[in-house]
Design a protein around this nucleic acid. Sequence first.
DNA 1: CGGGCTTTTGAGGTGTGTCAACTGTAGTGG
DNA 2: CCACTACAGTTGACACACCTCAAAAGCCCG
Lengths: 227, 227
Amino acid sequence: MNRLMKPGARERETLLNSGLLSALGVESVAAMMEIAAIGNLPARQMLFREGEPADMLHSVLSGYVRVYKLDPDGREADVELYGPGDLIGASVVLDGGRYGATAQAAEPSLIARFDLKRVRDIAGRRPDLAMALANALSGQLARAFASLADDRLHTAPQRVARYLLAQCPAEDKATSFRLPYQKSLLAGKLGLAPEALSRAFSMLRGHSVNVRGRLVHIGDPEALRRI
Amino acid sequence: MNRLMKPGARERETLLNSGLLSALGVESVAAMMEIAAIGNLPARQMLFREGEPADMLHSVLSGYVRVYKLDPDGREADVELYGPGDLIGASVVLDGGRYGATAQAAEPSLIARFDLKRVRDIAGRRPDLAMALANALSGQLARAFASLADDRLHTAPQRVARYLLAQCPAEDKATSFRLPYQKSLLAGKLGLAPEALSRAFSMLRGHSVNVRGRLVHIGDPEALRRI
DNA sequence: CGGGCTTTTGAGGTGTGTCAACTGTAGTGG
DNA sequence: CCACTACAGTTGACACACCTCAAAAGCCCG
């Protein structure tokens, strides 16, 4: 990782609002800030690889990190996509094991790293940190379960529709928004080949969805829900 | 749940060896034992349903519990299968939320339940419990990731082969063993329709695998690995 | 021996991955 | 500013893996 450094004022601010640190007491926050290292990742850089000994905990400050698993013959399957504020769940290995997947910056990103041994140490003394970890993991497990079920129950257009609805405000009225990352990333997140995502979008065109570049317009959320 | 009761000697013993309690200090074990309730579930009984307020933590003492998600039109997708010693991850909701899936006993089972509020309370004071929870969740997240990737990368015969290999002792020699549950359960766990599992087994018959009822014989593990 | 359940086998439909070619877009350098 | 390149996205053709439905066969337990 390029230019490892202590967190500055800007980074401390972002860290404070991240999922992991936002629920901690002041002493725990201070202890974690103490051991935090900030790094700037260029796009496509690896954070860690499947099988390596796990010695670091990672949290995304800005950008996106893609976590995927590899096939013997080199094919990749995305398993989770982390954005600003997210703790990278695959890097939480609390009993000194190995990373179970590979993490790669999907775009230029700012990452906070914590030495795992020291995190374990602090968490062993401060229950609020241990609970924050458990909370983060519990949420991620729920998301992983949702992905699994979604994969097995819904077709590509349905998964895309559900994703779009999740980005909409709750009310049932027309909305526009920008996709937060490129479509190939979204395809991977939804467990689709990029071509399948493209076809899903063009099928949804008949159901009040309009896509141009990263701009999405949804005319009738209720119609989407019925796909 | 039928016949809720305090844990007896036999149940305490089993609980002590369970994933959650085995790593705790004596005081935490005592505190958890204090609030444990044991219940006997007949096959097909629900432990909790998707969307219900989450107020209990569950751990399997014997038998198997299937956790699945439901489609609007009633189709089910299995998301995890828990056996003896397992903490039911979907029941770990630490911020007073709702269950994200449904849990059902796959066969007559013995279950330990803990009041979630009290668990949170204890974990807030005792870091070893909070860490044990985080550890359990981290392991389950890794398994969920593995399932996701497996679904997306491998065909049905490959997934079955990998499952069988995981049941084998590490050495590369012929082995026999019994499937721990019925095939329809295994199919669900692997994300397959029962018919697909059956077909996968008959395809593997040509690769040194022999199945009769729940008895599996594997002639050449190395050959399986090459599927 | 009969009922119910689980598993197997068969036939047909379809969703999605793969490969390939084409289009669009963005960024680079003359 | 315009060509040029590189990459992202689209579209089409095809294969095949898996789901669905249906029916037969096997198994367990009364």
